[in-house]
Design a protein around this nucleic acid. Sequence first.
DNA 1: ATAATTTTTTAGACCTGTCTAAAAAATTTA
DNA 2: TAAATTTTTTAGACAGGTCTAAAAAATTAT
Lengths: 216, 216
Amino acid sequence: MNTLAEENYLKSIYHLSLNDVTVSTNQIAAALSTKAASVTDMLKKLADKELINYEKYQGVTLTPAGEKIALHIIRKHRLWEYFLVEKLNFKWDEVHEMAEEMEHISSVELIDRLDKFMDHPKHDPHGDPIPDRDGNFKKHELKPIASLNVNESGIISGVRDHSPAFLQYLEKQQLTIGKKIAVTDIIEYDNSMILQVENTTTHISREVAKNLLIAI
Amino acid sequence: MNTLAEENYLKSIYHLSLNDVTVSTNQIAAALSTKAASVTDMLKKLADKELINYEKYQGVTLTPAGEKIALHIIRKHRLWEYFLVEKLNFKWDEVHEMAEEMEHISSVELIDRLDKFMDHPKHDPHGDPIPDRDGNFKKHELKPIASLNVNESGIISGVRDHSPAFLQYLEKQQLTIGKKIAVTDIIEYDNSMILQVENTTTHISREVAKNLLIAI
DNA sequence: ATAATTTTTTAGACCTGTCTAAAAAATTTA
DNA sequence: TAAATTTTTTAGACAGGTCTAAAAAATTAT
Ligand SMILES: [Mn+2]
Ligand SMILES: [Mn+2]
Ligand SMILES: [Mn+2]
Ligand SMILES: [Mn+2]
């Protein structure tokens, strides 16, 4: 159907489209750790297949067909991540690279059965929504803890940074998905925040507060 | 590490080596549905990597390193087949193509956890042995039902033909792994065999009898 | 033992996906 | 708005893997 490279480009374009309406050649190159010239080559191929809208120098957007493919890859990625954590007991910081390979397994029937086997999970281990087989999901509105004021609270529901280092740090601080947090103080000097997390008090930097998301 | 193509070649050579000490270029080409010229190209690469012993015109054998890789791919293939049947409820004739893709997922930790998740199965859904992480397995000695005489019996433990058509036929006749069978009669005219399978009587052709294996 | 046939290898081409270097276009700066 | 800078595209090359056609070696038949 589509090559591995094509799938990875479509997925990257989809993710980048969440922040910008149109996605640039250089953004894609950075996301895929490749060179701008290679991206241009691939954009032509994807445009020929009518998976993206592309005018040279104007950046790209996904066509409905391209978005559908991207969402299917993302569905597979997140279902496999859920499987790895819930069934094989991996930690949430260990599963991304494996899922990067597994998301390219092609069988639709397989992924539907996997979905059923796990009781149709709605979110992956990092709080990201899992699209259904038609690509639909309700995008939960999240905001960073950094946007809270003192005495405001919320439930941890996602992360903006998916790096193992960040995820391991959060795990150690018990700042995991589903935990209720409240802001007890904000240090004026560096804008760092003191949080109440269940029975314990935790001090996080502004940087961390920006990358840790709560449900609105 | 190794490319997908290299892994498929090593696996094919391994399987072909079970029937012949040395494996020919044409045999590999047929097994992989490719051309002899392509095989020769790849054999040079695998010989350069010291994964096969290759002298031109002399056929090939796997080196210990090549065999280790082949067994690891086969381990993954069979564990995924077991997963698909036992956990996702696929039928035994549906899983091979999916496993052909899944066997190339690289993580060793993943496959060890999968093995543990399923309680270290010793055989795949077709009765083939699953190598352990070091590539060891006890090769069960099997013989075709065709080698039995009247009144002899055995337990169905494997198949020689893995095609969906054959597997579906066996399923319909209840001739599945683990079933005890006894030969009640052999028809002289065409050498077809009458079997007692639990409470029912089944009539199978010589062709089927040759491809259905019992433990010795 | 020679000829005919089959198997295997070589030669040369092509496709995908990547790269570097250089040219062209767009954007930013002054 | 002209110059400097940045972004993007083009040109040309290369590696992996495949193919067809033809040559070479091995095997089988006569
Ligand atoms: Mn991920
Ligand atoms: Mn995730
Ligand atoms: Mn199989
Ligand atoms: Mn099998």
